[in-house]
Write a protein that binds this DNA or RNA. Structure first.
Lengths: 178, 178
DNA sequence: TAGAAGCAACTAACTAGTTGGTTGACACGC
DNA sequence: GCGTGTCAACCAACTAGTTAGTTGCTTCTA
């Protein structure tokens, strides 16, 4: 039987969960390893044993969250308003991811994008381009431009507290109108 | 004649300038008062004499930068694409403001908006509403929604390195198309 | 019983903020 | 033109608390 008291994966999971809360709330520089350890209910030495450093924990955390987001919101090139709306909803449900990504971008710029994310993005651009070639989608924008615009619209809540899913969908509908 | 060596306003100015660089690069939690003082070429006690605290310096700094931005980019309700484009250009010229604002929003939420900014925003909403009533602007969105969308579009560079002024203008043109 | 999991206690470095005293500019009387 | 009292501007050095990261030892499980 699997140990419940001493379980490496369970401990890592608890640290990742506690780190998510902490980093989302305070950012990378503002996060405190002692608070993370306390929230996870284990010693902070575990952070260094399993993730090497505070930044190591953050990177792994971000990667997992981005993967989860990519998995849970697949692109629908022939329904970009719906895609933007679903992204918007995901961010509303888990605002931590948006905050994590924002802090990461502010501290690292665009250069340090996890390869998994870049790869997924390339696939999405291709999907958009395909839909454009098939005439299902406006050719008014390059595929990359269009995807950038749609993704940007989905984070409208970053700019205003008045953002709603309906507004995001409506805006994207107008962006791609023929 | 005014002293050049001991000049309160000049020292405050140097601290504000040094703080702008520091806070834009490292955020509020990541900024170091010793570095700010060193960059400004004066003692860090001056920060506490003139601004009360690290946060005090940040708040004053942000207010000044926002005022400057509001002054330098007036809204043109009958040319929203141009307005978004000019905002975009301003952010490109002074990326620090966007970073400052982003850090501030991440650490304080939407609640703590400087009154000057809120007031200027209300004026802009009214200007948009007026243009809508005069039939110069689409009535497809509420005035507030529309302004939120346009302002959000202008920070496209926050989402993608591929952002250009032309793209921002084009997107806004489509948003407000009849 | 070997080895992995876990932690209390520690360290060395750093950090925001303070303090007591110094320095330069200038007004004023002579 | 010159001493001089005053005060704002300024700073080196300090404090008290915090921080990321480490280590040597204990505990649990297969």
């Amino acid at each position: 039987m699997r140990s419940v008291v001493r379980d490496k994966e369970a401990t890592k999971g608890k640290l990742l969960e506690a780190g998510l809360d902490e980093f989302a709330e305070y950012g990378i520089a503002g996060a405190r390893v002692d608070r993370i350890a306390a929230k996870a209910g284990c010693n902070k030495a575990m952070i260094y044993a399993y993730f090497g450093s505070k930044e190591g924990l953050f990177e792994e955390l971000l990667k997992i969250q981005i993967d989860r987001m990519i998995q849970s919101v697949p692109i629908t090139p022939d329904d970009l308003p719906g895609y933007a709306g679903r992204l918007f909803d995901s961010y509303q449900e888990q605002p931590q991811i948006l905050r994590l990504a924002a802090y990461h971008r502010l501290e690292n710029g665009f250069d340090v994008v996890p390869e998994a994310e870049a790869e997924a993005y390339r696939h999405k651009v291709e999907a958009v381009a395909k839909a454009q070639m098939e005439g299902k989608l406006t050719a008014a924008f390059d595929a990359l431009e269009l995807l950038d615009l749609v993704v940007h619209m989905s984070i409208l809540a970053f700019s205003t507290p008045n953002a709603t899913r309906a507004l995001v969908e409506k805006a994207v509908r107008r962006l791609i109108a023929e």
